[in-house]
Structure formats: structure tokens, C-alpha cells
Design a protein around this nucleic acid. Sequence first.
DNA 1: TACGTTGGCCAACAGGTGTTGACCAACAAT
DNA 2: ATTGTTGGTCAACACCTGTTGGCCAACGTA
Lengths: 188, 188
Amino acid sequence: MRRSDATRTAILAAARERFAADGYDRATIRAIAKDARIDPSMVMRYFGSKEGLFAAATSFDLRLPELGSLAPEEAGRVLVEHFLDLWEGNDALVALLRVGVAGAAGAERIRHTMFEQQVLPVAREVCPDPEQAAARAALAAAQMLGMALARYVLRFPPTVALAREEVVAWLAPTVQRYLTAPHPGGAL
Amino acid sequence: MRRSDATRTAILAAARERFAADGYDRATIRAIAKDARIDPSMVMRYFGSKEGLFAAATSFDLRLPELGSLAPEEAGRVLVEHFLDLWEGNDALVALLRVGVAGAAGAERIRHTMFEQQVLPVAREVCPDPEQAAARAALAAAQMLGMALARYVLRFPPTVALAREEVVAWLAPTVQRYLTAPHPGGAL
DNA sequence: TACGTTGGCCAACAGGTGTTGACCAACAAT
DNA sequence: ATTGTTGGTCAACACCTGTTGGCCAACGTA
């Protein structure tokens, strides 16, 4: 392991923390560099630009495993549990959401990471009418994104106070209904 | 009506638009002033500071009416419909959410505006155990906030494509369940 | 011992930011 | 006719931003 790899990961760790805490604009390269105990110019040399640093700090591969052996009636619980595993104490995801809300470029990243990479594949697998898969996946994603927003970004006390099992118990049926229940119809 | 009131409201309109489109940091006073066709210094004279302008541009009174005559089994639908009425085409709310996500000060504003001013009163009214009112209201708020995020801020195509009645048909039962259904228990 | 490479610091640049204060035209009232 | 107020512009200040390029110490290798 080269000596540079240590500082490289130190920069990435500091960047994730600062981006998650302050958002893209307020998280300055100078502050990140100070956290990593290096000169700001090093950040540029390692990652090219601030955008490059952000891209490197918020890139994941978080497809959920064992998709084939998924019982359709358990999709909600599996999805919510996977969602909680991902977000619990993950600064990079908080940073991604925070920045995605701020700019238009980030919105695309969030959609790709949260929606197309996670919820949509499950929806395609379990939902009855393939034509509705996108809409149903979007509903499920909105529910989980809302919980992520309240619990990990805004930190509303009542949502932070919820135990992990309680979140699963409340959200899993909702997600399950969005994915597999018959269309409610409404006033259409 | 004084001559100044016209420019005052022009500034506020431009500010809401810019804050909603670009977020707090990227929305510069100079850009807002140019949109309102005035000098940037006028913004300062009228609102004191950028924070003052933002506070003025995102202050609402959006308590929902007729709370006393609310049938408990209709709380979900009423709440979701009220929520959609509020958000549809409301730049100020989008701006508030966008900024609230970016900074810690905004999070408090969002909580007060969305949670304590809207959902919590309804929850206190209709939910069975008063001790659970806060948690249940938080769950409902998270669901609606997630839809607001996906539909009005991130503009996920599948959520934008949903008709208003469809959103109500899908979300109302969820909110209703969060507010009044018996505690699911789970693995507690 | 010489030397190129690696990892790092320092100082500066160019541009954009919120904010301030001086100045000014129009108009109403004395 | 003079005065005071209102609504507005202009130019600047002080600061902070991302970014750049030059310099430097250590070190492995020939």
C-alpha cells in the first residue's frame, strides 16, 4: 500500500462527512483538506476538481443480492430492511441526497442510485402488470426516500426515535402494497 | 398601494423562483435583483439580509381549516388532498424544502411548517393513543414529504406522471393507516 | 553519490459573494 | 421656492471560493 493511498482515503472520508453535514456548496475544499490534515491543493491533484471529488465520494454499488429467490409477498420487508441497512450511518448516502436536492445534476444521480438500481428491479420482478412497474416502484421509492429524508437528513426527532424494527413494521406493508396490491382506482 | 409595494412583491416572487430553482447558496442576490429588474442593494434595504429575504419568501400560514368537523376515517384523504393543494405549483414550498435539506437551520423550519403545523394537529385529533400521536404523525409526514421530494423537487418522471387522483388513491390509505391503524408490533 | 519520482506545502490568481454608503431624481408639503 | 421623503442607482469594500503553478524534502534506485 502506497503512502498516497492513505491520504487518498482520508480525503474521501473527510469529504463524505463534510458533504453530508454541510451540502455541496457549503462544504469547501479548504475545510475538507483541513479535516484530512493536508493542503487544499492536494485535493485537486488527487481528484481533479471539486465535482470529481464529490463523484468519487458518492459512488456505490448497492444492488441488492439474491433477487431471483425472492418471494413476491416478502418484497416489501426485504426492500425496507435493505434500505435501512444501507442508510444506517452511511454518510455518503446522506451527502448524495443532500446534494441531489440542491442541484439538477444530483437529482439524476439519486434517481439512478435509489430508483433504477434498487427499487425498480424488484418491482419488475414482483408486480403483477409490467406496465405499472415504474409507477409502483416510484411510489415505493418515494416512501423510503421520505423516511430517509426525515430520519437521516432532517433528523425529525420522532422518526429518529423509532426503533429499526418499528420502521420495518410500519413501512414494509406500505411498500408491499405499492408493489403488489391491485390498483386502488380512486376517482379515475 | 405605495410604489414600493410593487417592487417588494416583485423581489419576493423572483426570490421564491430562484430559491426553488437553485437552492439557497446558488441563488445569488444579484440574480434575484436582476430578475426583479432592480439593483441588488434594494434587496438589502427591503429585507436586511439574504437570510431575511429567504425568511420573508418562505413564510406561510397553512394550517388546514375545519379541523373540528373531521371524520377520523377520512383523515388520510383530507390530509393528502390538502398536501397536494399546497404543493402544486408552489415555488415557496419547493424552495423551503430544498434549503431545509441543505442546512440545519432550514430543517427546523421544515419541521415546524410541515409537521407541527399540519400533520401533528390532525394526528392528535384522530389517532387512538395520544402517546403515539407524534410517532404516527411523523410516519405520515415522512410519506408525504417523500412524495413531495420525488414529485416536486427531484421530479422523478414516474411520480410526475401520476395524476392527482392517483396520488390520492395510493397515499390516502397509507396515511390513514399510519394515523389510526393498530400498532403493527413487528418484532418488538 | 547522483538523480528522478513521489508526496506535500505555500502563495497567489481571478472571479464571485453579501453588504455598505455615497449620490441622485422625482415628488409632496411647507 | 425650499425642504424632506421616497425609491432607486453606482461603485466599491472585504471576504471567500475553486484552482494553479512553483518550490521543496524525502527516498528508492542506478
